[in-house]
Simulated assay, not measured.
Amino acid sequence: MGVASSGKTTIGTKLAERLGVPYADADDFHPPANVAKMSAGTPLNDEDRRPWLDAIAAWLTAREREGGGVVSSSALRRRYRDRLRQASPDVFFLHLDGSEELIAARMEKRKGHFMPRSLLRSQFEALERLEPDEHGAAIDISGTPEENTDRAVAAVPH
């Protein structure tokens, strides 16, 4: 979990490889209307997110029955994570945590993604950090992709 450009796809892919489980990118679960809205610089609302969260939840449920998986998803708000936990009670959230300045710099270098830089501030405003009763951990993402993946592997219960 984390804001746009925090490394969810990069770290998620590498983490899934190391754990030997399937990987999915939550961006692929967005209906076209959501992608169009974000591409136009308009943040999604909870109604927009409902079918997206339901699709991710279904993927998690299927993976839970088949031995696990890694899905990268912003999951910025507690209620979104609660929705995913309803489908998969053992889900572990890994918050890829970095400063807005670091992530903005990474976002500036990113090519071909629908999320514009103008929405980054709204993502930080929406972010609700993991609470002590949530099954998960936050990791610092200031390192290289390999260093960050090492931190992710160390944080995930095996």
Rank of each mutant, 00 (worst) to 15 (best):
A62I: 01
H113D: 04
L94P: 08
A104L: 08
A105S: 11
T42W: 04
L19Q: 09
D140C: 09
S142A: 15
R63F: 01
T13S: 14
I141W: 05
P22H: 06
H30C: 06
K109E: 09
S39G: 15
R110T: 06
V156K: 01
P31A: 12
R129Q: 13
A26L: 02
W52A: 09
P89I: 14
L60K: 04
I103E: 01
Q86A: 13
R117M: 12
R151G: 03
L60P: 00
L60M: 15
A87H: 11
R83S: 10
V21Q: 06
P22I: 03
Y23M: 04
G143D: 10
T13P: 00
F29L: 08
I56A: 05
R77I: 06
Q123I: 12
P51D: 06
R121H: 14
S118G: 05
E17C: 07
I141S: 02
D46H: 11
D90P: 00
D90Y: 04
R63A: 12
F92V: 08
I56W: 00
L96E: 01
E146F: 05
E64M: 12
S5E: 01
E146S: 13
S5R: 10
D48P: 13
E47G: 07
M1N: 13
I139Y: 03
D48I: 07
A154E: 15
R110G: 00
T149P: 14
E101C: 00
D97W: 02
Q123R: 05
G143C: 09
P89W: 15
L102E: 02
A40P: 02
R117H: 09
S142P: 04
L19I: 08
R106Y: 05
A33W: 03
Q123P: 14
E134A: 11
P51L: 12
N34T: 11
L15H: 12
G41F: 04
L19M: 14
D150R: 15
D140N: 13
L60N: 01
R63K: 13
T9G: 05
R49I: 03
D28G: 11
P51H: 09
P132A: 11
D150E: 15
L96F: 03
R121G: 10
I141Q: 06
S6E: 05
N34E: 10
P31W: 06
